[in-house]
């Protein structure tokens, strides 16, 4: 591991000041960053520990919840208000990692974890445009079972690995950021970016920007929400595909719906095409199948992951069925 300076931030202003120099990184639970540093994929010159910052869950004026970014994943998953009002978020967190890792990992760190593409991790043996821009991508012609089918580029086919983020995308969360220019917010779905020609850049955050909180908007029908993760073993594995969804059905028709996919793209994939196809229409199997097909119309399989196209369609249909649609 490359040597680095270590400092513990007392508050948000302190964190920004400590991270003002070049090659600084914020450290949460360390479950991804420490591993990346050991593999020399990440070589920060300075770490600023932000685990002492806000970890509270508080109601917002609009009726949502504001979640401090230093809250541990376990604490968010078991929070009574999250379990009751946003079960998809509890379910997504509980489907990810192991209990030990969820006890360590922070909410902010979960958002900023990096891809688990094996070629990205292989600093000595593989080409990777995300790790070494311009070096090439060994995943394109390589082992691509876990790689993207939507929104990828010739430069990068990596997937964003978070389960929690898929639920946050479906719920329309808002990210609170503190940066050199002050505080700002942005829609969660705009935080992560597609790879394009610059896959080394995962998010729209500027150097030194600190995620301070995640805001869940009020979404009453999210009480009827679910997360389904399909993986190679029953527990403690990254998703092949996953679906987060909330559904409101009235008189057999879809009054409102929120859908996001995991394991299919460089970012949590909010399925706006499927949502638009479903809204106002019948809440039944043919409509669910049609919406799934519309969302996956532009999917591009690689050598090993063509199965994901059908798998994510079927998973979406099954989840919507579980949430009260009549699947014929």
């Amino acid at each position: 591991m490359t040597p680095f300076r270590f400092a513990r931030a007392a508050d948000t202003a302190d964190a920004l000041r400590l991270a003002a120099g070049p090659a600084s990184a914020y450290l949460g639970g360390g479950t991804n960053l420490v591993d990346l540093m050991r593999e020399t994929v990440a070589t920060p010159g300075s770490l600023v520990d932000v685990t002492g910052l806000s970890n509270t869950v508080s109601p917002t004026e609009s009726g949502g919840l504001l979640i401090g970014a230093a809250l541990r994943n376990t604490a968010l998953a078991e929070h009574p208000a999250v379990r009751a009002r946003y079960p998809v978020l509890s379910r997504a967190i509980l489907a990810g990692a192991s209990a030990q890792i969820r006890n360590m990992a922070t909410v902010g760190g979960n958002l900023l974890q990096r891809t688990r593409c094996a070629y990205f991790y292989d600093a000595e043996g593989a080409r990777c445009n995300k790790r070494a821009p311009g070096s090439g991508c060994d995943a394109l012609e390589g082992f691509s079972r876990y790689h993207a089918i939507l929104g990828a580029s010739p430069a990068c086919v990596a997937t964003q690995p978070s389960d929690m983020c898929v639920a946050l995308a479906a719920l329309g969360a808002i990210v609170h950021v503190q940066g050199a220019g002050g505080a700002r917010t942005l829609p969660f779905t705009e935080l992560h970016r597609l790879p394009g020609d610059t896959p080394e850049i995962d998010t729209v955050l500027a150097p030194g920007d600190l995620i301070t909180a995640i805001e869940l908007p009020p979404l009453p029908f999210a009480t009827n929400s679910a997360y389904r993760k399909v993986r190679d073993r029953a527990s403690y594995a990254f998703a092949l595909v996953s679906v987060a969804a909330a559904l409101e059905v009235e008189d057999g028709r879809v009054r409102d719906v929120r859908i996001a996919f995991g394991g299919v793209a460089h970012k949590p994939w909010r399925a706006l095409t499927a949502e638009a196809a479903l809204r106002g229409g019948p809440a039944d199997g043919p409509a669910f199948h049609a919406a799934a097909a519309a969302e996956l119309a532009d999917a591009q399989p690689l050598r090993d992951n063509g199965f994901k196209i059908e798998l994510v369609k079927r998973t979406l249909v099954a989840v919507l069925g579980d949430l009260g649609g009549a699947v014929a």
Partner: peptide, 27 residues
């Protein structure tokens, strides 16, 4: 494994189980 995959390094910190291999001691 020294990379958070196996759980052999699990210890209790303030009663919570964590992976000591992914934990920097100074934290």
């Amino acid at each position: 494994c020294d990379q958070g995959a196996c759980g052999a390094c699990t210890v209790l910190v303030d009663g919570e189980r964590i992976l000591s291999c992914l934990a920097l001691a100074v934290q």
